[in-house]
């Protein structure tokens, strides 16, 4: 009887533990809807992605961006300055066909692009951007640094990072 109880507790604790890990480290959800196909939802627990990264080859653990060169320091200062400044529209372009809006909303930069047949919305959490820039080593960005930034930023919860809507397709990437 005791053995059964122990087994039941162990079995119950596994999904609870996993749920706790997902809740504490976050979950990136990729949601793709097409007009004529199935809806595909891929939830990626960040703790799992981080664990998988340990087995990945070296080239998959880093993103080469040599063009960033000496700019991360400037970019970091820009991000810090933007975090300090008041909310408002930074850039708005309307050329009749397309409308582009870049706005500072709280600790995020929201980019909205809309045209006749497509709408794109991107949110850049400034805290996460700052952390990602900190992980740049002069030529490469560490993927682990990006995952850390995504999981540590509490402001990201429930945020649609990317939302693309066209006539036939809708793609949403959000963090939970």
């Amino acid at each position: 009887m005791f053995l059964l109880k122990t087994a039941a507790v162990v079995l119950l604790s596994i999904p609870l533990l996993l749920l706790g890990l997902v809740a504490s480290s976050g979950l990136v959800v990729v949601d793709v809807k097409t007009s004529d196909g199935p809806r595909i939802v891929v939830p990626v627990p960040l703790f799992l992605a981080r664990a998988a990264l340990g087995f990945a080859p070296q080239e998959a653990r880093e993103v080469e961006i040599p063009e960033l060169g000496e700019y991360p320091e400037i970019a970091s200062r820009l991000v810090a300055e933007l975090r300090d400044c008041a909310d408002g529209i930074l850039v708005e372009v309307d050329d009749g066909d397309d409308h582009v809006l870049i706005e500072k909303v709280g600790d995020e930069i929201a980019i909205e692009v809309s045209s006749d047949d497509e709408e794109v919305s991107v949110r850049i959490p400034l805290a996460a951007a700052s952390e990602i820039l900190d992980s740049y080593d002069g030529s490469r960005l560490r993927v682990a640094g990006i995952l850390d930034a995504l999981s540590s930023s509490s402001s990201l919860s429930g945020t649609d990072l990317v939302h693309v809507r066209s006539e036939n397709e809708e793609v949403k990437i959000w963090v939970w």
Binding site: I74, L90, E92, D95
Partner: peptide
């Protein structure tokens, strides 16, 4: 004109100063 563009840019001068370095 018709199909005209409208552009608005609003930036803190401190941001412009830093961006200049790039």
């Amino acid at each position: 004109e018709a199909d005209a563009s409208h552009v608005k840019v609003n930036l803190p001068l401190s941001v412009v100063q830093i961006a200049l370095e790039a």
